[in-house]
């Protein structure tokens, strides 16, 4: 997948030591006063694949919505390739951080698959031939080539999720943040989606309860609870720490076996 010209190549950035994503003391509360993020900090290097795990209500989805300015943090900073997120920079940041929402029907609002994948690049003001080329390429990358003229609501959930990923890939965003991408998928669709995430040469952040997926393709894990990052480290260490996991409403993989071994 080609990233757009405005974004420096991943390899060069990795060498320069610049973070793809830098979150510092991020705080957020909903209008009724419920705090959702209470000071979260972490750094993601270009090309890294990171899991966000934690119980329902831990703040994972809220964190993702803060990464490209859909929600505005009340404190702390988010930097994307060095650029600080603000009211003014949010539209630029959205060309770099693609968000994938857990219900693909929320994302797919067009009458055909191709139209929807074309929305992002069209909005950015790219010429039509490039929009079409990017959209076709994105659909090919997710294994949905040939579905261009299909109606989204006639696709299976797994197909919708992959098309939704294509709608973000077509924008050429170097960072992909996904909310529960494997929820409610049948085993084969789940496997296909996991392999797709493994293949994509992007910086990836996944909020999930699917610890099997984490151990397969996401080498690093951030464990969240009650708006705080509790632990941050190698997935294989955190996923086997039954005491910590249990204290935050999760079960170690070994407890329920590896469902797709």
């Amino acid at each position: 997948m080609k990233t757009n010209g405005a974004t420096p190549g991943i390899e060069r950035l990795a060498a320069s030591g610049m973070a793809a994503l830098e979150v510092d003391d991020l705080r957020f509360a909903y209008p009724d006063g419920t705090p959702s993020l209470r000071g979260v900090s972490f750094r993601v290097a270009p090309g890294e694949k990171v899991a966000l795990v934690g119980p329902n209500g831990a703040g994972k989805s809220t964190l993702l919505l803060n990464l490209n300015g859909i929600l505005r943090a009340h404190g702390g900073t988010v930097r994307v390739f060095g650029e600080e997120l603000s009211e003014r920079s949010a539209p630029l940041i959205r060309a770099r951080v693609g968000l994938l929402f857990s219900n693909p029907d929320d994302q797919l609002f067009s009458a055909t698959v191709l139209e929807d994948v074309a929305y992002g690049p069209l909005h950015m003001g790219l010429p039509e031939d490039e929009v079409l080329a990017r959209s076709r390429e994105a659909l090919r990358a997710v294994g949905m080539a040939g579905f261009e003229d299909r109606v989204p609501h006639r696709l299976s959930l797994g197909q919708k999720r992959r098309v939704a990923i294509a709608t973000v890939l077509s924008m050429g965003t170097p960072i992909l943040a996904l909310d529960e991408p494997t929820a409610s998928l049948d085993p084969r669709s789940r496997r296909e989606l996991i392999e797709l995430l493994d293949r994509l040469p992007l910086t990836i952040l996944v909020a999930t309860h699917d610890l099997g997926m984490v151990s397969d393709v996401l080498p690093r894990t951030i464990l969240m609870d009650a708006g705080l990052a509790i632990a941050d480290g190698q997935s294989r260490l955190i996923l086997n720490d039954a005491v910590t996991l249990g204290a935050h409403g999760l079960e170690p993989l070994s407890a329920h076996g590896h469902p797709h071994a």
Binding site: A6, F101, D106, M124, V168
Partner: peptide, 20 residues
């Protein structure tokens, strides 16, 4: 959720007029 998903894909890149 739909509005958020749309806004999230409503990006701007330098050198192009966004939003049609």
């Amino acid at each position: 959720r739909m509005i958020r998903a749309r806004d999230s894909r409503s990006a701007t890149i330098p050198g192009a007029r966004a939003g049609r």
